[in-house]
Design a binder for these strands. Sequence first.
DNA 1: CGAATGATGGTCT
DNA 2: GACCATCATTCGT
Length: 199
Amino acid sequence: MSPAEEAPELGDAFFARPVGEVADDLIGCELIAGDAAGIIVEVERYEESDPASHSHRGPTPRAAVMFGPPGHLYVYRSYGMHWCLNLVCEPEGRGAAVLVRALAPTRGIERMRARRPRARADRDLCAGPGRLTEALGIDGTLNGRALGGEVRVHARRGAVALVRGPRIGISRAVERPWRVGLAGSGHLSRPFPAPAEAR
DNA sequence: CGAATGATGGTCT
DNA sequence: GACCATCATTCGT
């Protein structure tokens, strides 16, 4: 069998663009973390002008990484027990990032099962921001690290169909449809709301 | 199916 | 002291 051609690895130029563009373009890309990997099927975008964003109040100690160079990891603790993975976007000085919310596992599935023994089905391994970091072994020690080391992202191959909807788990700016997903994916953290019927 | 809830600790006012 | 960019479980319909 001929060796699969590796998709190019995404670098700083990819992430230095507007966060909305990056969010769309990350859907369908493969995220690799050490011994496991998956296709990104769901993300959310956060930016400085957004009241729901950690960067909204400026570069506080926690949010400082969001204002740093693009193509770096912002990993924060959620509800005292989960880790959430973001990819910093836009030129240095702007507080924007994309939250990775769900993956379709591709490699290291046995490792993921070992790290998440309570996940019943494979579809639950990476269906949620806290779940996927646990499955991939990502924690706060990676906060502020550059992509290309322990964590890498490979470019998407073909075209993908996107779905949009309101973000999950926030209480402010809920009306902004800044959650993006891969249409028809069975690995989402939750279904997207059905489009409003025309009548 | 959905709603309710406890776990558990950092961050910011 | 309030608020969480969550998850797994339990209980109700």
